[in-house]
């Protein structure tokens, strides 16, 4: 389960062509509202996102990688995503990831999920199945989800605020120990979910992310999809 594999680097690479580059993870709305203005506020934003939406995504990904029923996890993801804009985005990203992964790591599990959810399953669930197909375990899947939860906003803020890219990368580096912690908690919860059911998975939620996602979706002009 703690096997180190280069497949994780391929999967977590920001250049993995699964649509992530067009999503700011709520950062575009936070920049407009003045809640992200510099490196420090970006860090605090990313830290909050990591421990809420990031932890939840990591738990779902770890559970899917561990072999829990993806359709049950997809329903659990719906319940953990009160914002319809974010549910739609998660499904769209799930479909995009499925497309890329079916080329990179073809897998009957992915084919089955794509057939059951032709409009896309929640991205973290797909991510877990992809990790599994790539020979990665639940912890690695949780790492990929946790990293994605913060790398997306950090990259977006470099574009939105012309923030010094070194500073944005330093934010990610400073968050690394907390990403370790989140990934470990998510993987541990995924194992508990085998015995206790899906309620054992984290359900961390960030009110401002949910609220502003709906506002952002209604903007007539925006740079990022979310």
């Amino acid at each position: 389960m703690s096997t180190l594999s280069a497949a994780l680097l391929v999967l977590a690479d920001g250049r993995f062509p699964a649509g992530g580059h067009a999503h700011s993870g709520g950062a575009e709305a936070a920049v407009k509202a003045g809640r992200i203005t510099d490196g420090a506020s970006l860090e605090s934003f990313c830290r909050g996102r990591l421990h809420t939406a990031g932890l939840t995504a990591a738990g779902l990904a770890a559970a899917a990688a561990a072999g829990l029923d993806p359709l049950g996890l997809d329903a659990a993801a719906d319940a953990r995503t009160p914002s319809p804009a974010l549910r739609a985005a998660a499904r769209r990203l799930g479909r995009q990831l499925t497309r890329a992964a079916r080329a990179a790591w073809p897998s009957p599990d992915l084919d089955a999920l794509a057939a059951a959810r032709p409009r896309g399953a929640h991205q973290p669930v797909v991510l877990g199945l992809v990790a599994r197909a790539a020979g990665l375990g639940p912890l690695a899947a949780a790492y990929a989800a946790a990293y994605e939860a913060v790398s997306g906003p950090a990259t977006a803020v470099v574009r939105l605020l012309s923030l010094d890219p070194f500073e944005a990368t330093a934010v990610l580096a400073r968050l690394a120990p907390e990403m370790d912690d989140v990934a470990a908690r998510a993987a541990e919860a995924a194992l508990r979910a085998f015995d206790e059911g899906l309620d054992a998975l984290p359900a961390g939620s960030a009110p401002l992310l949910d609220i502003t996602a709906e506002q952002h979706a209604a903007w007539p002009v925006r740079l990022f999809a979310t």
Binding site: G19, H21, A22, L160
Partner: peptide, 21 residues
């Protein structure tokens, strides 16, 4: 319309998944 995250060339060349969708 496809959202491009301020990088249209990424959406047509490096990560074409949203356009294919």
């Amino acid at each position: 319309a496809v959202e491009t995250g301020a990088c249209p060339h990424t959406a047509i060349r490096d990560d074409i998944s949203a356009n294919l969708e």
